[in-house]
Design a protein around this nucleic acid. Structure first.
Length: 242
DNA sequence: AGAAAGATGCCCT
DNA sequence: GGGCATCTTTCTT
């Protein structure tokens, strides 16, 4: 098709705020193929998005905004086109892009992408935390690491060309060919797994590997025996594996 | 004040 | 394939 998910954005153009005013599921799909870039004193790194996930607000049990507005998720309730960056698992950052008008919480989690510029810088950043010569931005935390995204960018306006963190339309505008998109359940989500709100470019090697949610056994300090039978949530559905 | 869980990634066997 | 690292947020006494 000539006009894929054309939203009026010319290739390479910084996305307008209207791009993010729609529901997260639509925005997520249109974000595939777009370019996230972060300019720092060290240089510029650009990533073409290949995998995203949509999250809603109060109606979505898997959303950080499910229990209402808090200090952490405040950005999600703000105007669209801003970055919601949060810290998780004591060591990782993840970045979302806020959707829907101000007052309504919704966002798209950026899970993976292909580094198309600044690969050297991205590699250096990734090497700091782990000498893994693996994929630069495969996985939400890796993506943040490659782009040097941390809490300082929480609330950043990605629609402002003057912002250090921006999102541009890709080579063919926004979105990719409809036939090139796969959908499936979100990763690491307990409830609402039936909602196929994860979108990725079919067959793209930079897409992260699906990993079913597993509850990590709580570490018990000072417990010699360590006998805490955490009820093994028997997930009968073992169709997908790593 | 304390505890439990978390939109994960890495290293080791 | 499985366990561990590490800390912030939020809910519960």
């Amino acid at each position: 098709m000539a006009a894929e998910q054309d939203s009026g954005a010319a290739p390479g153009e910084v996305l307008a705020r209207e791009f993010f005013t729609g529901p997260a599921t639509s925005v997520a799909r249109n974000l595939l193929g777009c370019v996230l870039e972060h300019g720092t004193s060290g240089g510029l790194v650009r990533v073409e998005l290949t995998e995203v996930e949509a999250y809603e607000g109060e109606a979505d049990p898997a959303s950080h905004a499910f229990r209402g507005r808090t200090a952490r998720n405040a950005v999600m309730f703000g105007p669209p086109g801003h970055a919601y960056v949060y810290f998780t698992y004591g060591m990782h950052f993840c970045v979302n892009l806020v959707c829907l008008p101000e007052g309504t919480a919704s966002a798209v989690l950026l899970r993976a992408g292909r580094v198309i510029e600044g690969a050297g810088l991205a590699t250096a950043r990734r090497a700091v935390a782990g000498p893994g010569g693996r994929d630069l931005a495969r996985g939400p935390a890796r993506l943040c690491q490659a782009l040097a995204i941390d809490r300082g960018l929480n609330g950043a306006d990605v629609c402002d060309p003057g912002s250090p963190l921006r999102v541009r339309a890709g080579r063919s505008g926004t979105g990719v060919a409809p036939g090139a998109v796969s959908t499936g359940p979100r990763v690491g989500v307990n409830g609402a797994a039936e909602r196929p709100w994860r979108f990725w470019v079919t067959g793209d090697p930079t897409v992260s590997v699906y990993r079913p949610h597993v509850r990590r056994a709580r570490r018990r300090p000072g417990d010699p025996a360590g006998e805490k039978p955490v009820a093994p949530a028997a997930d009968g559905d073992g169709t997908m594996q790593r």
